[in-house]
Design a binder for these strands. Structure first.
Lengths: 194, 194
DNA sequence: AAAAATATTTGCCATTTGGCAAATAATGAA
DNA sequence: TTCATTATTTGCCAAATGGCAAATATTTTT
C-alpha cells in the first residue's frame, strides 16, 4: 500500500517518543492528510489562527515575521522529520504573528485540529508523545539560537552550511541573512571570503 | 500559618495553568521544600544529574556553561515566579552541561524527583499543568533569544535593563556581557555611552 | 587601614559589520 | 531572444565591536 510508505517516516518518528500498537498506527494514518507545497508557498500566515499541524516528510520550512522596523526576519528553519506549527497560536487559538513558508518544495502530512483532538481522545499515549516532541523541538531551538549570539557571522554561516549543505545557494539571500542576523551584503561578502 | 504565605506565589502560579482543589494544594505544599541560596551559590552544576526543580519565589538565577573556547557563557536569566531546571537533563536523567546559579540571594521552593513523581501519580492534572508551564517557558526563551540576533548590542542591553532594572550593576560584567554576546569592555563602553 | 586580589574602565588600534548606491548577474515575462 | 524585473555583488566609507594591556576602581583579606 502506498499509504504505508507515505506515512513511514511519520510513524517511525512518533515511535521514537512512545509505543503505539497497529490499531493506533492505522488510526493516525487515517487522520493524516498528504499535502504538497511548492517553494515559496505558505503553510500558515500571520494574522490567521493556525488550524493545522504539518509533519515535514520532505523539504524545508522557515518561520518568519516582520519586526518593528518592517524588516522581514527569518526566525528559524525547520527541516524534514519534524513537525511545524506556531504552537502558541495553535494551542491558544489566537492569530499567529508568524509566517510558515516552504523554502523548497515540500511533502507534508497534515493534521487538522479536529483530527488531533480525536487522536488525543482515542490514543491514551498521544498527549504524552506530543508533549515530548514539543519539548524536544523547543529545547533544540533554544540550544541552536543561544550560541549564535557568541559567534561571529562567518561561524554562524558555516554552521548553517553544515546543517543545510544544499540550501544556502537555493534560497534568497534575505532569508538566510536575517536568520544569521546580518545584512545581505555582509552575507554576500562572507560567502565570497570562504 | 507561615506555610500558606510561603507557598502563595507557587500555588497562584500553578493555578494559572490548571485547576486544583484544596486537598491537592495541600499535598503540593507538603511536597515543596523551602531553600535559600546566597548570591553566587549553585542550584545545580554541570556534570551532575539534576535531582530537583526550583520554583523561584524571590531572586534571579542564571544558566551558564563553558563553550568550546573555554569562555563562560550566560545562556539566560530566570527571574522570580518561574521554575528553574535543566529540563532535558532532569527528564532524561543525564548529567547536565549547564550550571544554574543564584545571581542574587534567592528564596526557592524545591521539589525532588520523588516528590514530583508522587504529585504526578496523585494529581490527575499535574502532568498537564507541568507541560503547559514547560512549553510556555521554552517558547518565551526562543522568543527572547530570536530577536537579539537582529539587534545591536546597545539595544540588547537596554532591553535587559527594562526586564531587570535593578540587576545590571549588581552582577559581574561577565555574566551580562556573555548573555548579550559581547565582550566585557564593549559592555563597559556601552554603559558609559548611555 | 593597608595590602592584595578582583573587577571595571580606558586607550589604542584592528577587524567586523552596516549603509548606501552603482554595477553586475540571474530570473522571469513578453 | 530580448527586455524588464529582481537578486546579488561590489566599492566606498562609517559605525560597531573586539583584542590586549595598562590604569583605575572596587572588594576582600589580613
Amino acid at each position: 500500500m502506498t499509504t504505508f510508505v507515505t506515512m513511514d517516516k511519520l510513524i517511525n518518528y512518533l515511535l521514537e517518543f512512545g509505543q503505539l500498537n497497529q490499531q493506533q498506527i492505522d488510526l493516525i494514518q487515517r487522520k493524516a492528510q498528504v499535502l504538497e507545497l511548492k517553494k515559496g508557498e505558505y503553510f500558515s500566515e500571520a494574522g490567521k489562527i493556525p488550524k493545522q499541524v504539518a509533519f515535514i516528510k520532505e523539504g524545508i520550512f522557515r518561520v518568519c515575521y516582520y519586526n518593528s522596523k518592517g524588516d522581514e526576519i527569518t526566525k528559524y528553519f525547520i527541516d524534514e522529520n519534524n513537525f511545524a506549527v506556531d504552537i502558541k497560536s495553535f494551542n491558544q487559538k489566537i492569530p499567529s504573528s508568524e509566517y510558515v513558508q516552504a523554502v523548497i518544495d515540500c511533502s507534508l502530512l497534515v493534521f487538522s485540529t479536529e483530527s488531533l483532538n480525536d487522536l488525543s481522545a482515542t490514543i491514551i499515549q498521544w498527549d504524552g508523545i506530543i508533549n515530548k516532541i514539543t519539548e524536544k523541538a523547543l529545547i533544540e531551538k533554544v540550544n541552536k539560537l543561544s550560541p549564535m549570539l557568541a559567534e561571529d557571522a562567518t561561524t554562524r554561516y558555516l554552521k548553517f552550511l553544515e546543517k543545510f549543505p544544499n540550501l544556502a545557494n537555493r534560497i534568497p539571500l534575505s532569508y538566510l541573512a536575517s536568520y544569521l542576523g546580518i545584512t545581505q551584503s555582509s552575507l554576500s561578502r562572507i560567502r565570497k571570503s570562504i
